[in-house]
Amino acid sequence: MLDRFIKAYNEAVFETDKEAAFTAVNTALAEGIPPEDIVFKIVIPAVEEMMSNITKDPDANLAQHFMTAQIAAEVTEKMLEKFEHPPEIIGRVVIGTAHGDLHSLGKRIVMGCLKALMVEATDLGVNVPAEKFVDEAIARDAQVIAMSAMMVHTATGEDGACKVRQILKERGLEQRFKLIVGGAPYRYDTELYQAVGADSWAPDGVNAARAIINLIQQVKHRDSAQDI
């Protein structure tokens, strides 16, 4: 029975038809599918498939990414409200655009995918000072700081990723948080992320979610290794 809903949901997502996606999910609920199954067996596999498709399709359509990430986030949010027990969170990330940068839509895709993949993402908004990235990461007990910068001067500027790295270094926090960057300038120069002191980067919003999960696992793995 689940297969029928998976098919209907995937078709709706492929057509970026939010109304149809919700119809599929609501029908599944009405027919007794638990919200947990909807998230873990329908929504998450759909997000994962989108991730692998994007890597295969170089002409991936950004508008479709926005819409599918939005559907995934909204459906997940709605289902989470209905969970009997809150789901286990994979990890936590604080995300925002670099100081001086108001281009917020890239981070939007990342957040949508993260939400659907059970990562708790705290949106720090746009034009975020470097100090705030670090302070919030501490306050939220995050594993990853994610910074989006769409312009060369905000990607490479003194108040951007470089400064976050400097603060992490000064405050001895480099073991605790991983720093990931994304945005057009890093795509043009694929080594730029290292120059600004980031641990990783991603070429698009969907892959950024995957890269962030990798970093979360690195931090957690190291933590658990230290515990032993």
Binding site: T16, M67, Q70, L102, R108
Partner: peptide, 18 residues
């Protein structure tokens, strides 16, 4: 009005992509 500072704008943007 600076749209990038309004939280609802992005939702609207995505709504209008189709």
């Amino acid at each position: 009005i600076n749209l990038s500072l309004l939280p609802g704008y992005e939702d609207r943007y995505i709504e209008h992509l189709r």
